[in-house]
Design a protein around this nucleic acid. Structure first.
Lengths: 213, 213
DNA sequence: TTATTTCTCTAGCGGTCGATACAGAAAAAA
DNA sequence: TTTTTTCTGTATCGACCGCTAGAGAAATAA
């Protein structure tokens, strides 16, 4: 009875399976997951207890464990789903903009909006939710995501240097790390009470350093 | 038997009191406090348990409570002492440099060194130790320190604007917040594995935005 | 209906949390 | 020495932690 990560009711087109055998789940898995996202986002991995989770998800502990596995695997799913629902503006900017400069510009401006949007906690879950975490694997997991994001930006910058879009002498690693640090600082600022306008002003200042061709 | 925050053996000049009456403390309070600083610095307020503290400080729980009060007041003393021993480079830069520009330059460069120095945890205790903290007062206390630091920089910048050292149109609040965000981002980067050189490169890039007179 | 499957509810597991009662040990004071 | 004061070590306290056993409830299958 461990690790049934998929809902039994298949919604995939084609395989349209019949109703599952036993008693159906009494809650909506997606809704419960969203509540878990908000809880972990606000308080972080460790400070969000299982009883906090069962309260906000409005289900009993055995239901939680049956539907999501233990606290760790629920958190992993939360982080994945957070990425899809809230944390993809960076990847989108890198994928959709034609230059690193344009991608960074969009990234910083969208961060200002995303990190202060109403209806959910401020700042970024990936940046904050595993700080001061006594489970090293959890801390490492989010650290890995943060560093991967910076690495992705770095290689995008390298591509622009190779294409002549940026000066040959540009330090891609340092520039990418600078942008990563600014975004992480903006997230901290959002947590500390900065408004969207405050962060947009920070983003504009941060963009002024971009090297000219 | 609660809240004897001061050592009985006075070291203040002048009042040179005689030895206290009862059994003397068997450990050095300063040394124990330093160990507590390192523990809270590395793991944060909540993730550092009292039994972690008694282990690294090498004293029993009753001795800890007698000498430092409860966990909260020990942490408060740790934060104060951290400021004195490790976290004063920002204040010193503001106090000793003649312009905001020079102060910020020194601040960012010294942050790169301080946040990666060997012999103690990386990054800044004030920035990280109360993240994801379920005691709101503790979280608020460090948030207050962070925002106060940015406010101090802002007023230093305002002074330079008034003195004609900076353009009249300079947005002091945004500029101060930008520097604060960069420093907080550098601290996060240090926690995520950035080296001194990495952070120095970030600092140099960050400084390139400073407005000219 | 009856049998089978799966979920939910209650209750509680062993472990750790922050904090302390109590008795004995170690110093100065009388 | 005896008394007084203070600190230290042991042995907990009640509360909460993540997690689960077991019984009953609610669905489908036969």
């Amino acid at each position: 009875m461990v690790g049934s990560e998929e809902t039994k009711t298949q919604v995939e087109p084609g395989v349209r399976r019949a109703k599952p055998r036993g008693r159906p789940r009494s809650f909506d898995r997606e809704t419960a997951l969203e509540k878990a996202i908000l809880a972990f986002w606000e308080h972080g991995y460790e400070a969000t207890s299982v009883s906090d989770l069962t309260r906000v998800m409005d289900i009993g502990a055995p239901s939680l464990y049956a539907a999501f596995g233990d606290k760790r695997s629920l958190f992993e799913e939360v982080v994945r789903e957070y990425g899809v629902r809230y944390g993809s503006f960076g990847d989108r900017a890198l994928a959709e903009e034609s230059t690193a400069r344009a991608a960074v510009e969009r990234m910083l401006r969208e961060a200002a909006v995303a990190y202060t949007a109403p209806g959910h906690p401020h700042g970024c879950l990936v940046i904050h939710a595993a700080t001061n975490c006594s489970t090293p694997e959890v801390e490492e997991s989010l650290r890995g995501r943060r560093n991967a994001n910076i690495a992705a930006l770095e290689s995008r910058i390298r591509a622009d240097i190779a294409a002549g879009e940026l000066p040959a002498g540009t330090d891609a690693a340092a520039l990418a790390r600078y942008v990563g640090a600014v975004i992480q600082g903006m997230s901290q600022q959002a947590r500390d009470g900065a408004s969207r306008q405050d962060l947009e002003a920070v983003a504009e200042i941060a963009l002024a350093i971009w090297p000219r061709t």
